Amino acid sequence: MSGEQHPDGALLQRSQRAIRAWLEKPASTATSPLTGGGAIARSEARLAELHEGRPALLMPSATYALWVALRTLGIGPGDEVLIPKYDWVSSLAVVRELRATPIPVPVVPATLTIDPVLAAARRTARTRAIIATHLFGIPTDVPELRRVLPGVPIVEDCAAAFGSTLDGRPVGVFGDAAIMGFGPGKRIDVGELGALVLCDDGMRKRALQLSAHPVRQKVSGIAFPELTSMSIRPHPLAAMLLLDALDEDDAGPMIQERLRLANSLLVASGIDVLGLDARRGVASRSVSVLAEQVLTAELPAATKIAYGEVQDIDALARGTSRSRRIVFITTAAQPLGVHRL
């Protein structure tokens, strides 16, 4: 492809940089998904450091991390799991795959996150967990969920919200477990990778028994490894890519730039950006794209979607809004995912 950029050029360049960076670091063990050593251990330690010391485990994808999280909480047939009515399909798919019952809960219009009041109203004797998705990087009010649903475990879906904050703390530290995504369309993209952040070492041990190779279970101090676990492991190179990306990452400037652009949009065109409040720091690039197109009058009509009180994707597609004008954007690189029940 002389004179043209190879379609995989950016990924390969990042990979080469990450490999060089890893070769320059001192390492006592090889990077191995069988043992969890090397760059895998280093990445997990870095993720724990970024999430107030909570133990972390690399996973091959965010969806598998969600499956492990719910299995770790003991979710199975007959259990009910509260999920956002407006969400990417993974929450629905994983709950159904475990033969549990998904209970959809409407979202708060200003944030597109699960409504704590309505979640509490849908609790039954069979409610065993809540999935709190920080959709489009906007944090769910997990502390309020905890207050109105005491005793119900909460799994934070941070797949699209790595680096976002709520009340000055990083998302992923409020629930019993949290999943991260580092694949296509995410703020940090290493090709394909996920992570699971857990509230304590007991949860970490159980997650290892459900997802790790018996060798890693043994190395981690599990005396009697679970030999029939669904051992689906992360690729060693993905761990190196993530570690390199984390070394360079700083979500702070992105959060501040989003706030600046959101305020500019409100002043210039009356667009009220989702999740704009004093409690939430949203690490998302989508507003940058929206601001550039709106402020230069280049926003195609088909690109914007108005969201009001109607929680219905057909109404969203028509641009229906019954309340204030709230606009968000989706691009080919970050497709909009919705499920309806």
Results as ranks from 00 to 15, higher is better:
residue 249 D to M: 11
residue 228 T to C: 02
residue 240 M to V: 09
residue 269 S to Y: 07
residue 233 R to I: 10
residue 284 S to F: 05
residue 228 T to L: 10
residue 278 A to N: 13
residue 271 I to W: 09
residue 279 R to Q: 14
residue 226 E to T: 09
residue 231 S to A: 14
residue 270 G to D: 12
residue 266 L to M: 10
residue 230 M to E: 13
residue 250 D to V: 01
residue 283 A to I: 13
residue 234 P to F: 07
residue 225 P to E: 00
residue 273 V to M: 07
residue 259 L to F: 08
residue 282 V to K: 11
residue 238 A to Q: 03
residue 240 M to S: 04
residue 243 L to Q: 03
residue 263 N to E: 10
residue 231 S to R: 08
residue 237 L to A: 04
residue 275 G to S: 13
residue 254 M to R: 04
residue 278 A to W: 15
residue 234 P to L: 11
residue 241 L to V: 01
residue 283 A to W: 05
residue 228 T to D: 11
residue 247 D to F: 02
residue 280 R to C: 14
residue 251 A to Q: 08
residue 230 M to W: 12
residue 266 L to C: 08
residue 260 R to H: 14
residue 258 R to E: 09
residue 253 P to S: 05
residue 243 L to T: 01
residue 261 L to Y: 13
residue 248 E to P: 04
residue 267 V to C: 04
residue 227 L to K: 04
residue 282 V to F: 04
residue 271 I to Q: 06
residue 224 F to E: 08
residue 255 I to W: 05
residue 247 D to T: 05
residue 228 T to M: 05
residue 251 A to P: 07
residue 236 P to S: 11
residue 281 G to Y: 15
residue 276 L to Q: 15
residue 250 D to T: 01
residue 233 R to D: 07
residue 238 A to G: 08
residue 224 F to W: 05
residue 228 T to P: 00
residue 234 P to I: 10
residue 252 G to A: 14
residue 281 G to P: 14
residue 277 D to Y: 15
residue 228 T to F: 10
residue 245 A to Y: 00
residue 264 S to A: 15
residue 264 S to Y: 01
residue 266 L to F: 05
residue 242 L to M: 06
residue 258 R to Y: 08
residue 272 D to G: 00
residue 241 L to E: 01
residue 282 V to N: 10
residue 232 I to A: 04
residue 284 S to C: 14
residue 280 R to V: 14
residue 252 G to E: 13
residue 256 Q to F: 06
residue 230 M to L: 13
residue 275 G to A: 12
residue 264 S to I: 10
residue 281 G to I: 15
residue 256 Q to I: 02
residue 240 M to W: 03
residue 227 L to I: 08
residue 256 Q to T: 04
residue 273 V to A: 10
residue 268 A to D: 14
residue 268 A to N: 11
residue 231 S to K: 05
residue 267 V to F: 06
residue 247 D to Y: 01
residue 259 L to T: 13
residue 235 H to P: 02
residue 253 P to H: 06
residue 258 R to S: 08
residue 235 H to L: 12
residue 246 L to V: 01
residue 271 I to G: 07
residue 273 V to T: 14
residue 230 M to K: 10
residue 259 L to A: 15
residue 283 A to C: 15
residue 224 F to L: 06
residue 247 D to I: 02
residue 237 L to C: 02
residue 229 S to G: 10
residue 244 D to Q: 08
residue 265 L to A: 10
residue 236 P to A: 09
residue 225 P to R: 01
residue 284 S to I: 12
residue 249 D to K: 01
residue 254 M to E: 04
residue 258 R to G: 07
residue 273 V to F: 06
residue 249 D to S: 09
residue 270 G to M: 12
residue 236 P to H: 09
residue 236 P to N: 08
residue 227 L to W: 05
residue 242 L to R: 03
residue 248 E to K: 11
residue 242 L to W: 06
residue 249 D to V: 12
residue 268 A to F: 12
residue 253 P to F: 07
residue 238 A to T: 07
